[in-house]
Design a protein around this nucleic acid. Structure first.
Lengths: 215, 215
DNA sequence: TTCAACGCTTGATAATTATCAAGGATCGAG
DNA sequence: CTCGATCCTTGATAATTATCAAGCGTTGAA
């Protein structure tokens, strides 16, 4: 977008640092701000009945709640920090203003929104087409790839969060790790060693249309 | 969008009628066209391993595969007609052209894309936060509401498709209907009578942030 | 140093969901 | 009208996943 429009937009924004485990937004509330994660990590989650599920994790530099802002609607998800995090808050009105005023900004927003959309579609496919063990196996392979594919990886979140993200209970995540032991998966806290990626891939059957970074 | 830009875009488009059960696109293929359902009904589905899942249904007037077109990426879902359907195909290049040229079109596209995004998020919440019976109960209440809330409803798709859409097997859908019988749900083919919506709602616990039409 | 809190794991069991097999109903083609 | 195909349903069983309870190890505060 134009330097000038960017400046205008940024002058309306707040850059704030939040402690860990702080609730930023609650589903059902009107979308007052667009959020951009600058540092740290944010968990998107949802509740219904009395169940709770992690919907996604946002890391720098990522936005969340973009669709609600653009539609001037209520949030569909809640969000909380899962580390001390630096976050940019841009008032919704100003986002929509810039969106009307600056065509380049509009196009950038659309690319971001389209990426978010495809992210959720992939997550949905993941959940509908795979068992819990397969989801874990593929997630490990993804982290392994993203962290340099050097035979080991670090789980980026605690296991409880990872379990919910993968659509299972913490107990089941533990058991899923045990199921993967014969496939060369050794776990020590948040450190995971993959001793036989070939075997793991045979089990996981990774699919670029679910696990791919781009696309 | 401007009349002129609309004319230009439409001159590149094809309006075609397809028979039922015809495959329109296959996941993994490059996004050559944006699709608009004018008449009939289209099923979006995905495959992995050797499993298949219905991802959504598109009815007039709805688009599909918008995000892939905007990102110039491959399709994440396959699509097939589930009735004889009249469909508009707009070449992706021309959509992206109009998208660059006409700001009103861009904004309209964004609204559509944001709606699609929120639709998938709701579906994802539905799957993660509810059991199969709850999903069916809420779906029945939704159809009931959308069809005039007069005590009965027609299932818009055959039960096999409905089952896959709700994330269960056809056998389980049958059993879920039986589970709902004590809550006043009487099924006769695709015709369903709700004799006790109060009781059904108590079981279903509908949530506007999952089942709401707008938002 | 001690203790409580927390996260994770394990075992036992229950609930949910899927699979396989078979049978009944419906519908369209011949 | 009859036959075969398709869809749906039901029963029996298996697999998957969740729940409940208990225990272990680490961590951090008093």
């Amino acid at each position: 977008m134009s330097e000038q429009n960017f400046e205008t937009l940024m002058q309306t924004a707040y850059l704030q640092t939040f402690p860990t485990q702080l609730d930023l937004i609650t589903e059902g509330d009107p979308a007052d701000f667009l959020y951009v994660v600058i540092e740290g990590c944010v968990e998107l989650y949802a509740r219904s009945n009395s169940r709770e599920a992690t919907m996604g994790m946002v890391q720098p530099v990522g936005t969340f709640i973009l669709a609600a802002v653009l539609k001037d609607a209520v949030y569909l998800m809640s969000a909380r920090t899962c580390q001390k995090s630096k976050i940019l808050l841009i008032p919704s009105d100003n986002v929509r203003e810039a969106f009307q005023a600056d065509a380049s900004f509009t196009r950038a927003i659309v690319q971001e929104l389209a990426s978010c959309y495809r992210g959720v579609v992939k997550e949905h496919k993941n959940l509908k087409l795979r068992t819990a063990v397969e989801r874990l196996a593929n997630r490990l392979l993804r982290y392994h790839r993203d962290q340099g594919a050097n035979g080991s990886l670090d789980l980026p979140y605690d296991k409880r969060t990872l379990a919910s993200l993968l659509g299972m209970t913490p107990e089941n995540l533990s058991r899923a790790f045990n199921t993967l032991k014969p496939y060369g998966v050794d776990v020590d806290g948040s450190f995971v060693r993959l001793n036989d990626t070939k075997a793991l891939e045979t089990l996981a059957k990774p699919n670029p249309l679910i696990d791919g970074r781009d696309q």
